[in-house]
Design a protein around this nucleic acid. Structure first.
Lengths: 154, 154
DNA sequence: ACAATTTAGTTGACCTGTCAAATAAAAAGT
DNA sequence: ACTTTTTATTTGACAGGTCAACTAAATTGT
């Protein structure tokens, strides 16, 4: 009468998030490894530099809002990147609280060097994904992201 | 002749991964917050317990392989969960290196309590995603995951 | 049998991520 | 003008994540 000896599978409730977490772990490891050998940058550093180059803004707050990287982490990371000569901070004229961030020439050089290989990686990642599928993919990400802002579950 | 005063946007090369990273940050914050109030479990603890309940295995190695959580982290987490009375370790008969993990009754109770709310969250996340779109979404995840295993970029 | 290799799990060191409290400068309300 | 509230950034404390070296037990090759 061994019936539920192994009280097995029902629903892996958090399957979407489970899959995403695992994918994320794998993507991070890949990016970290590529960046390390190709530029010496850490993943966060790369993300910060890319975001600053890409978007039309340059303060910690904006960086934190767009990337969802914790502002505490950013504050420290930025300080260390200024030390390393990757970023420059210039105080805002009007608002004495805010600092504007700009890439140094050195940072731009490093990014330029890392870019082709990171671009190749991006191409590799998306090689077998059709344009339509990618569009759906982004659409689903948008929806998940919107829903994930909800803190109270009904 | 101010031309490229702001040497702006080209391609945010790592756009897919950028989007995924941001989504992940948001999902983690949501799950962490829900779990904390509904069960006192941390996100990793929940992931470990769910994975053990869901899959047909129970050793650290297998857990590490399937979740991509670092085995070092797992080793320590498992030890602390044994301390807390969430897991039990029983040594393998044949292979003296391996330990089999099982949820304690306490862990099962906690999971049972957290499950409905986590299930509700999952439903909320996928509420507006059609079956077809979700299928495409998983397909793309599979491809990204496969491509992310490549460490050398051509 | 036994040396060489592989494998499961542990440990140390160190970086990343998160939360909350603290500071200090604006902005809003009175 | 002055108190209250909001906002940008910093700091402290601590959990999570990653890497590499290590131990001990299996497995493989001879």
């Amino acid at each position: 009468m061994k019936q539920d000896q192994k009280p097995r599978p029902r629903q892996l409730t958090s399957f979407v998030t489970f899959r995403l977490a695992r994918l994320q772990a794998s993507l991070n490891a890949q990016a970290t490894s590529i960046l390390k050998t190709s530029s010496g940058l850490s993943l966060v550093e790369w993300r910060i530099l890319q975001t600053l180059e890409w978007f039309e803004f340059n303060t910690l707050k904006q960086l934190s809002d767009i990337t969802e990287i914790d502002k505490g982490q950013l504050s420290r990371k930025i300080a260390s990147m200024v030390d390393k000569g990757l970023l420059e901070q210039t105080p805002d004229e009007m608002d004495k609280r805010v600092q504007h961030l700009t890439l140094t020439q050195r940072a731009r050089d490093i990014c330029a060097k890392a870019m082709p290989i990171m671009q190749a990686r991006q191409d590799l990642l998306l090689k077998d994904v059709s344009k339509d599928d990618l569009e759906v993919f982004y659409k689903v990400i948008d929806k998940l992201e919107a829903a994930s802002k909800t803190r109270e579950i009904p």
